[in-house]
Design a protein around this nucleic acid. Structure first.
Lengths: 218, 218
DNA sequence: AAGTATATTGACTGATCAGTCAATGCACAA
DNA sequence: TTGTGCATTGACTGATCAGTCAATATACTT
């Protein structure tokens, strides 16, 4: 005895919402249509009716996941920062916060990464996503390079943007594996110091305070 | 009609070798015992006899994979480099070469990453591996910090080692997704410039040559 | 030669699932 | 009211696989 009808778009979202949770828990290949259906409160058959196949469901889920990711936004607060170095740091910080506040999404993302290896369609979608990601970093990267042409001679904006992305993704991997001990704050500090402008002391402080004795001169 | 007997250790290696290829092609969950057996030229049952279960096989494969990974080695050539900055750069270069020369291994690694999300045993093994990885970077990181305490004030060796690892893993992800267009050389140049010592010009060149006019003063 | 332990096989089982389909109910139009 | 189109169901199917097991060949011991 079929239940009440519901507009297509609504049903699809309802099912995708269920699929999101199931997939985050069980992994992509562990996602069973029956489980998604149960979680969404509909029948097995209806899921197939709306998404045609399991693969169709997982592709739609990926689209949904990417669309619902507020792509790296340079809010007015960040743009207000004068130094591009500060901007870049603020971006890193922002992204890492998102990382730890949405663990489920991060987990699912790993699954799609490894699915990318063998599935060309998924790979293409992920590739686009990464390109968007790098593109968002690019203007800041350009500003950083322009602000210090001597230090960054030979460095391309694309390269620097890619490195910025790798900070985030690399941090994600490590913190996922070692949630207990991996110290994101330490990571962030190290990353920030790598990007930072020429040491402030050299310009601001008087010569007498330049070299505090922390280590032997080596 | 059972075939000739072969020493346990040999059979296991033979089967693991087959499993390696199958898993790299099909993914962990797509790895069928039957296919591994066929590739190894033995029966389905024998694989189970030696590894007890599919999970047992995949765990053994992971061990084998990790053991056979020459962990980040600071060869004499690298240690000979005077500057720790140069050493770090050399390490990055070396690791990225390995990355592109062993694509199958890299692919398999992604699978184990995402498996880590849900399987505690796999996660533990991967965690250890990453710890080893960071540990290998650590002495160099310490030297880098010690060589420039002003610039790296507040930065821990652990943090810097983690960032180094994230360079490599982040690069791996991006180059896997976009093998065609992702420019590893650009990435490497950008990464190297981030780690490099304070711009050489400031010390070596005469004052008159300090600020080549490439851009307006900001 | 006889005996023992074990590596190896292939047939079998039982469970699991993705996908199909006829039947059925709902909404809306004529 | 009747009809049409479509969403929804649940039972069914067919294929796929991991894991079991009895039978058997092999190597090694005595």
């Amino acid at each position: 005895m079929p239940g009440a009808k519901v507009p297509q778009a609504v049903r699809r979202k309802q099912i995708l919402g269920a699929a999101y949770h199931v997939a985050a828990e069980r992994g992509l290949t562990g996602t069973l249509i029956g489980e998604v259906a149960a979680r969404a409160g509909v029948s097995h058959g209806l899921v197939l009716f709306h998404f045609k196949s399991k693969r169709g469901l997982l592709l739609a889920l990926l689209d949904w996941l990417l669309e619902s990711t507020t792509v790296l936004h340079l809010g007015p607060d960040i743009l207000a920062l004068s130094s591009p170095f500060d901007q870049l740091r603020a971006l890193l910080r922002q992204e890492m916060n998102r990382l730890s506040s949405e663990p489920q999404r991060t987990r699912l993302t790993f699954d799609y990464w490894s699915a990318s290896v063998r599935d060309a369609t998924i790979r293409s979608k992920m590739r686009t996503e990464f390109a968007r990601y790098r593109a968002a970093f690019r203007p800041v990267a350009e500003a950083v390079i322009a602000a210090n042409p001597v230090r960054f001679r030979g460095v391309t904006a694309a390269g620097l943007a890619a490195v910025s992305v790798s900070f985030i993704k690399g941090c994600a991997v490590q913190s996922m594996l070692d949630h207990e001990h991996f110290d994101i704050a330490d990571f962030l500090v190290a990353a920030e110091h790598l990007i930072q402008e020429v040491p402030a002391e050299r310009r601001r402080r008087p010569a007498s305070a330049r070299r505090p004795v922390l280590h032997s001169a080596r």
